[in-house]
């Protein structure tokens, strides 16, 4: 059985007259990492929130279709079950600091206190999460004093400690500096390595291509296509949906370097390998890009 399934998911915000999500259906296996891309306003955040059950739990508005988590309908789960099942990480790390705690350690434990995890286990989980995301050394720091990347990893740790099977990240690095981005992407890779099903909304196509097993392209609330990065980024019509392929793919397209499957490469390694194989001089360009 698929781990996460969307069936004819529709959603309209209260007071709005266009659908933010328009008949979206897909299914995702356990442990997959799914990228969510699309131009501004295409519905990425709305989809993320629907997957985490905040739509329709938190937002009212017109809702149709369903999201199934492990075969159970998200809309019918209570707050408690839902937050043990799915975690959601937002764009702005600052907004995810509860403000109720004076140290990063207590901050990570916040969710565990809410769902009544026993104290011993709470300590074990908080420590595990913080060590995994390399923030254990900041455990005594005042949460608001952390850097953006550290703060975001603290937010991820807070979600991870709840032991969800699914983690949805909505542009988790868009407000971070390059160092913070790197830290957070490493953190996401770690989560993925733990068998967690991941949804990652992101504007950086290179990262999406490097990270994700499959990518969902949204446009005006519709799911245009959900496919492997190579197949999706090899499409000719990406520009009509307001997205661009990774630079490597664009370069390969210009030079018409394709793999055996007829698709363009999407990551640096692949591109390099193909360029070498075809003995094209483009390899020099890539080294420079790197």
């Amino acid at each position: 059985m698929a781990h996460v399934t969307a069936l004819h998911l529709k959603y309209k915000y209260p007071g709005s007259d266009t659908l933010a999500l328009h008949d979206i259906s897909f299914s995702v296996e356990r442990g997959e990492c799914i990228g969510i891309i699309g131009e501004n306003g295409s519905g990425k955040s709305s989809l993320c929130q629907a997957l985490a059950g905040l739509i329709p739990g938190f937002y009212k508005g017109a809702y149709g279709g369903k999201v199934l988590l492990d075969g159970q309908e998200a809309a019918h789960m209570d707050a408690d079950t839902l937050c043990r099942k799915v975690g959601l990480v937002f764009q702005n790390p600052f907004n995810q600091v509860t403000g109720a705690k004076l140290t990063a350690y207590e901050e990570v434990a916040f969710g565990l206190e809410n769902i009544g995890v026993p104290r011993e286990e709470m300590h074990a989980r908080v420590r595990e999460a913080m060590e995994l995301l390399h923030i254990y050394e900041y455990r005594e720091h005042y949460p608001f004093d952390l850097s953006g990347g550290q703060m975001q990893r603290m937010a991820i740790a807070g979600v991870f400690a709840m032991r969800p099977e699914i983690i949805v990240l909505d542009e988790p690095v868009s407000q971070l500096d390059p160092q913070g981005r790197k830290e957070v992407f490493e953190a996401i890779r770690t989560l993925s390595g733990h068998g967690i099903t991941i949804f990652l909304a992101e504007h950086n196509m290179e990262q999406i291509a490097a990270f994700c097993d499959r990518v969902a392209l949204l446009h005006e609330g519709r799911l245009i296509c959900m496919d492997t990065p190579a197949r999706l980024f090899s499409r000719d019509d990406l520009e009509t949906y307001g997205v661009e392929a990774p630079v490597f793919t664009k370069l390969a397209r210009v030079l018409q370097v394709r793999g055996q499957d007829g698709l363009f490469p999407v990551t640096l390694e692949e591109t390099k390998r193909l360029f070498m194989e075809k003995r094209q001089t483009g390899a020099g360009v890539l080294e420079w890009l790197e």
């Binding site: 959601l88 809410n114 009544g116």
Partner: peptide
């Protein structure tokens, strides 16, 4: 912020525990 609290079980009806 309200959503971030929600996903961390702030509205859970469980009996709270304390760190």
């Amino acid at each position: 912020r309200a959503m971030a609290l929600e996903v961390r079980g702030f509205n859970s009806r469980c009996k709270k525990s304390f760190l």
